[in-house]
Simulated scan of single mutants.
Amino acid sequence: MELPGEDMRPVINRLKRARGQLNGIIDMVEEGRDCEEIVTQIAAVAKALDRAGFAVVAAGMRQCVLADDGLDTTKMEKLFLSLA
């Protein structure tokens, strides 16, 4: 299923922020920064990516319900579990 671009704008913004955070983490590692700071930032990026994934799955479910195309619950369950 393809999702309209306007539905994905918040996801795109979240992913771009995560990309910026990830670039910052790479810089931190290259600079030899404190491991606790690095791990904290990695956890933040991981959470941002998880939220982006859940937003995509939720948008897909919403589109299926609104389009009355039927909802493949097994497929959606697999998508959710892949984010766990």
Score class of each variant (00 low, 15 high):
Lys16His: 13
Leu81Gly: 04
Phe80Met: 14
Val45Lys: 00
Ile38Ser: 05
Val39Thr: 10
Leu3Ser: 09
Met8Val: 10
Arg62Asp: 07
Cys64Gly: 02
Ala67Glu: 06
Glu6Asn: 13
Gly5Asn: 10
Ala52Met: 05
Gln41Asp: 06
Asp72Cys: 05
Phe80Gly: 00
Glu36Met: 14
Ile38Ala: 06
Ser82Lys: 15
Asp27Met: 10
Gln41Tyr: 11
Thr73Cys: 13
Ile26Tyr: 10
Arg19Asn: 15
Gln41Pro: 11
Ile25Arg: 05
Leu79His: 09
Ala44Phe: 05
Ile25Asn: 09
Ala46Phe: 00
Ile25Asp: 11
Asp68Phe: 01
Met8Thr: 13
Arg17Ser: 10
Phe80Asn: 01
Glu37Met: 07
Thr40Val: 13
Asn23His: 12
Arg14Asn: 05
Asp34Phe: 11
Ala67Cys: 04
Gln41Glu: 14
Arg51Trp: 01
Arg19Cys: 12
Lys75Tyr: 11
Arg19Leu: 15
Asp27Val: 01
Ala84Lys: 09
Val29His: 11
Ala58Asn: 08
Ile12Asp: 07
Asp27Ala: 11
Met76Arg: 06
Lys75Ile: 15
Thr73Glu: 13
Gly53Arg: 02
Met76Thr: 11
Met76Gly: 05
Asp69Pro: 01
Gly60Glu: 03
Gln63Leu: 08
Ala84Gly: 10
Glu30Leu: 12
